[in-house]
């Protein structure tokens, strides 16, 4: 089974609204997930799909099949949500008449998603788009209360070399960002992200410190020098090293459920 599935969804495509969710449902059924899990994931995906069709230009789903959970990451480019608390309330809706005619827009969508999720995290920028991260646990055994992956887990999974022994690698990784342009990473990464880069210039640690990242993975096999490591200690930014290509590191992070920044 592919550890990650990707689905692209068009906005305003009312006729096909729901198609991806039923595809996901069939897929989960083939994989013999428990019926309750299938149902919950299908309802979450359907409501998210309807939201994409109704309120955005386009969006996409990543579906991660992790050890103890199915993780759905939904991203869109669209109007975004002004007030998330308000949007979560049952009955609150900004739907147009067209949407209401379809039988949606009664203000149940996000509430429905929340009801069926074990974990839900929403980020939204009005006028830009929304990111939903949703976990549905597969069984109650080994239930953990967090959606979190840590740098330690990542290090262990891919046998990364820790260049900064002693620095904290148990902080929660909120997502990932890959890039080799400092200004780009400075502009687009978020606090708590893990950064994948092939750069070995000491300024990497300065940007990582400034943006409060959880760590940096130096990919591609070019080992940073002593000055780099020294600065990393000063900034308290853990540095991991690997010969894997940046692409493979990102793919590996995907299998752990680490998703990209909005």
């Amino acid at each position: 089974m592919h550890p990650v599935q990707f689905y692209h969804l068009k906005g305003k495509d009312f006729f096909n609204a729901g198609r991806t969710s039923t595809t996901i449902k069939r897929f989960l059924r083939e994989k013999e997930y428990p019926p309750q899990v299938i149902q919950r994931v299908a309802i979450i995906a359907y409501e998210a799909e309807i939201n994409i069709v109704c309120y955005t230009d386009y969006g996409y789903f990543f579906l991660y099949f992790l050890d103890d959970r199915v993780r759905i990451v939904v991203k869109d480019r669209g109007q975004g949500i002004e007030d998330i608390d308000q949007a979560m309330q049952e009955g609150f809706s900004t739907a147009s008449d067209e949407i209401r005619k379809l039988g949606f827009g009664a203000g149940m969508g996000l509430a429905n998603i929340k009801k069926n999720a074990d974990k839900l995290h929403i980020q939204s920028v009005p006028g830009v788009g929304t990111v939903l991260k949703i976990d549905v646990l597969v069984n109650s055994e080994g239930r953990s209360d967090s959606m979190a992956t840590t740098l330690r887990e990542i290090m262990t999974r891919a046998d990364l070399e820790n260049l900064t022994e002693g620095l904290d690698i148990d902080k929660v990784v909120t997502g990932g960002y890959a890039g080799d342009l400092l200004s780009d990473v400075n502009a687009n990464s978020s606090a708590g992200n893990v950064w994948v880069t092939v750069l070995t210039h000491p300024n990497v640690t300065a940007v990582a410190g400034l943006k409060d990242l959880t760590g940096v993975i130096i990919a591609g096999g070019i080992r940073p020098g002593a000055d780099f490591v020294e600065k990393a200690y000063a900034e308290k930014i853990p540095i991991m090293f690997t010969e894997m290509s940046a692409f493979d590191v990102v793919a590996m992070l995907s299998t752990l459920g680490v998703s990209g920044n909005s």
């Binding site: 609204a17 729901g18 969710s21 299908a42 359907y46 379809l102 039988g103």
Partner: peptide
């Protein structure tokens, strides 16, 4: 239901 659009069928399928 009194709804008649294709999402009725999608909903039936999801549930």
């Amino acid at each position: 239901t009194g709804l008649t659009n294709p999402q009725v069928i999608r909903t039936v399928e999801v549930l």
